[in-house]
Amino acid sequence: MDKKSIEHVAMLARLRLSDGEIESLESELNRILGYAEQLSELETDLVEPLAHPSDLTNALRDDLTRPSVPREEIQSNSPKSDGEFYLVPAVLGNANELKK
C-alpha cells in the first residue's frame, strides 16, 4: 500500500485523513496485509471455494408483509428530516469535494 492507494481507499470509505494519519496508516496497513499475506503460502488449488462458513442453505421466508415501523419512529434515527423525507446535503454537488 502506498500513499496513493490509501488515499483511494479512504475516499471510497468517505474518510478524511490528515497527512500524518496517512503516513502512520501506510506502515500499519502494510503490516496487517503482510500478516494476511502468509495465507498465500497455502496450497489451495484443490480446495473448493467456500461461499459461506455455515453449512446452511435456503433460509427462506414466505412472501408475507409485516407492519413497517411508523415514520416518526424510524426517522428519529436520522439527523435531519422534514417529517416526510430524510434530508441530506445536495448529492448533485461534486463528489470530489469529499476528497479534501
Binding site: 422534514d82 416526510e84 423525507f85 441530506v88
Partner: peptide, 10 residues
C-alpha cells in the same frame, strides 16, 4: 435552488 437538501424516500 441547487443548494437545497436532497430528499430521500426509502
Amino acid at each position: 435552488s441547487g443548494s437545497a437538501d436532497t430528499k430521500i424516500d426509502l
